[in-house]
Write a protein that binds this DNA or RNA. Structure first.
Lengths: 132, 132
DNA sequence: AAGTTAATTAACCAGAGTGTGAAGTACAGC
DNA sequence: GCTGTACTTCACACTCTGGTTAATTAACTT
């Protein structure tokens, strides 16, 4: 039951890994304009075809693209679903980047919950840095 | 002048790379609750301290955390700013995952550009996969 | 001063990621 | 059937990651 890594975690790891390479992000951007063959995708880069082919494999592995077959071409098209998952994941931190009140807010909330819990040792400037 | 990779691209690469590891995402989740020392961050994992220390270095390199010093502790706190950048980046694909008209739209655009290019083989199920 | 605690750095290793050129596969066209 | 085109797979090199243990730094404790 208690697997070390969950399905969703693996999906996220695969997607973030795939997105961690500028060439692959560039390929996705290209595919947002519509289907393209491997050769078309490779053209903008100073890189051999096999290299692109492997980048596409990574993208496919993360479910970010799907591939067809038309004659000797393997047209690729974007599948943005995993990006929605990424967007949802980041959303969980929205509050953290919107609020600049983080620590204050947190402190206030603590006091509201229980005024006696934290007498003064919460984040005292004296113990912060200056003890020479 | 014309750098091969831009600043923004590097930032994105660093952030996605950092997020591509489940342990690092887990650490960020922990830090969303507030500051924590390295030891506290390491506790949940069956992993030695140096390993965690390096994960923290990666997160710091991507600007996802900031580190202080309190006595012999190095408290870490979340900096969600790069996550906002990621959210903004994914936003550019929102349309792609919201619309289910992808292929239709693309087909229409192809026809508009050049009606003779693709007579009928656009996305015929027979040529799609069915080879014995 | 000596020892404990917190964390980093150093040295090392296994494995994954990213590129190359060369060979192999699949389809189209003369 | 042979040749060209599109792409993949193979074999290799090289670097980056991610983990380990051992040694080092830094601050508190007694």
């Amino acid at each position: 039951m208690t697997a070390t890594t969950t399905e969703a975690e693996d999906q996220l790891t695969a997607t973030f890994s795939a997105l961690a390479h500028p060439v692959r992000r560039s390929i996705l951007a290209r595919l947002a304009d519509g289907e393209a063959s491997v050769g078309e995708l490779a053209a903008p880069f100073e890189m051999t075809m096999p290299a692109i082919s492997r980048h596409l494999r990574v993208l496919e592995g993360a479910g970010l693209i799907a591939r067809g077959r038309r004659a000797q071409y393997r047209p690729c098209r974007l599948n943005a679903e995993p990006l929605r998952v990424v967007a949802d994941w980041t959303e969980q931190y929205r509050q953290a980047w919107e609020e600049r009140f983080d620590r204050l807010d947190e402190h206030v909330r603590t006091l509201q919950l229980d005024p006696d819990t934290e007498p003064d040792s919460q984040h005292d400037p004296d113990t912060e840095h200056g003890g020479s």
